[in-house]
Simulated scan of single mutants.
Amino acid sequence: MKILFTFPGQGPQFPEMLHRLPATALSQSYLTRANAALGQDVLTLDSAVALRATREVQLCLLISGVVWAEHLRAAGVQPDFVSGLSIGAFPAAVICGALEFETAVKLVALRGELMQQAYPQGFGLSAIVGLRQLELELLLDQVNSPMMPVFLANINAENQLVIAGSDEAMHQVCVLAAENGAQKTRKLAVSVPSHCVLLDKPAAKLADAFNSVTLKRPTCGYLSGSSARVYWQPEKIADDLAFNMARRVNWFDAMVAAYQREVRLAVEMPPGSILTGLTQRVMTEGLALSLSQTAISELSTLAQRLERR
């Protein structure tokens, strides 16, 4: 039985999320390190106003993911694999030992700024539930154009998909999706068109920044949420981190890959539990749990019991 730590992308963030980290010396040490790396008080990043900005959201998700995962590890729960959706790949890379925390803070700040500057308004992501990939791609073909760009961005489950593009184009696709049997459409709390060619240029700039960064071989498997492959080579992890903003997310295949590698316990780091529901669909003979909804002590006991089986 193997254990997977998962880290969410943008969407489940909430005001004061860094203020609600465990009140421990471990949490404070990471906040202090983040302050030094960023050159500002990171506890100013999680106000309702601050979280309107992509940079602030991504930094909060990085810090939160690392701190919660380190608390879980301190309780004796060690991952065999880590995987993150979009920005979640960065705390995953820190926890598996491939990327230094301070370096991740600086890179994520740059990542958020690049994405924010590329599309300051009028673009984003929308979720569509109830259609399969081929069905949705036919609708995208009807709308997508240079003036109205829209693309398939995430394959979260076989019938849970996300599109990226201009607000107007996404609205048209959502209307068509509803007319063609979609159960639900919803614009997400993400202000940039992630995981498509619209972010090729920002991704290339982030890749340039990675040229001056040295990554290490991970101590556990780094499972890409884009390619659904497990990477051990530092250069492949760097490439995955730099370009994942412009590459389609394939969380469904990533979780299939984890299950095939004998993962039977997947734990999602706060905030939220979106990945938990998606992962449980695949892990038919295992458990997917959210640390937002399950105490660390309970997870530690459960992991020990499962390992003895």
Score class of each variant (00 low, 15 high):
293 Q>H: 14
83 S>G: 13
142 Q>G: 09
122 G>T: 06
216 K>P: 02
85 L>E: 14
237 I>K: 08
299 L>T: 10
196 C>L: 06
129 V>C: 02
41 D>H: 09
6 T>R: 11
121 Q>G: 00
140 L>R: 02
281 R>C: 00
217 R>S: 09
43 L>K: 01
279 T>N: 03
120 P>L: 09
242 A>S: 13
168 E>F: 07
196 C>N: 13
151 F>A: 04
69 A>P: 04
81 F>S: 05
161 L>N: 08
297 S>A: 14
287 L>F: 09
29 S>F: 03
307 E>N: 09
266 A>I: 06
49 V>S: 10
3 I>Q: 08
262 E>F: 09
49 V>M: 08
58 Q>S: 03
118 A>C: 07
192 V>P: 01
294 T>H: 14
240 D>F: 02
22 P>S: 07
303 A>D: 06
123 F>A: 05
133 Q>R: 15
254 A>I: 14
9 G>W: 08
242 A>L: 04
193 P>C: 02
16 E>K: 15
175 V>E: 11
305 R>V: 01
22 P>R: 07
64 S>D: 11
123 F>P: 03
85 L>N: 15
27 S>P: 04
80 D>M: 05
71 H>M: 10
29 S>I: 03
157 A>N: 14
182 A>V: 12
280 Q>N: 03
51 L>Y: 02
88 G>V: 11
232 W>M: 13
209 A>E: 14
239 D>Q: 15
289 L>E: 02
188 L>R: 03
82 V>P: 06
222 Y>L: 09
132 R>W: 02
190 V>W: 02
44 T>P: 03
68 W>V: 14
190 V>M: 04
234 P>V: 11
92 A>Y: 11
148 M>Y: 08
285 E>I: 02
152 L>W: 03
305 R>A: 15
262 E>M: 05
96 C>P: 11
28 Q>A: 13
263 V>C: 08
252 F>P: 00
108 V>A: 05
175 V>K: 04
205 K>G: 01
74 A>M: 09
175 V>F: 01
253 D>N: 15
14 F>Q: 11
218 P>G: 07
279 T>D: 01
40 Q>R: 15
59 L>F: 10
232 W>L: 12
300 S>P: 06
73 R>N: 10
296 I>F: 08
82 V>G: 09
158 E>T: 08
52 R>H: 10
154 N>C: 11
270 P>F: 03
104 A>V: 05
213 V>R: 01
229 R>D: 14
163 I>A: 10
5 F>Y: 15
94 V>R: 04
280 Q>V: 00
123 F>H: 15
248 R>K: 14
52 R>V: 00
20 R>P: 01
139 L>C: 04
50 A>D: 10
143 V>I: 15
210 F>H: 08
24 T>W: 13
69 A>Y: 07
196 C>M: 07
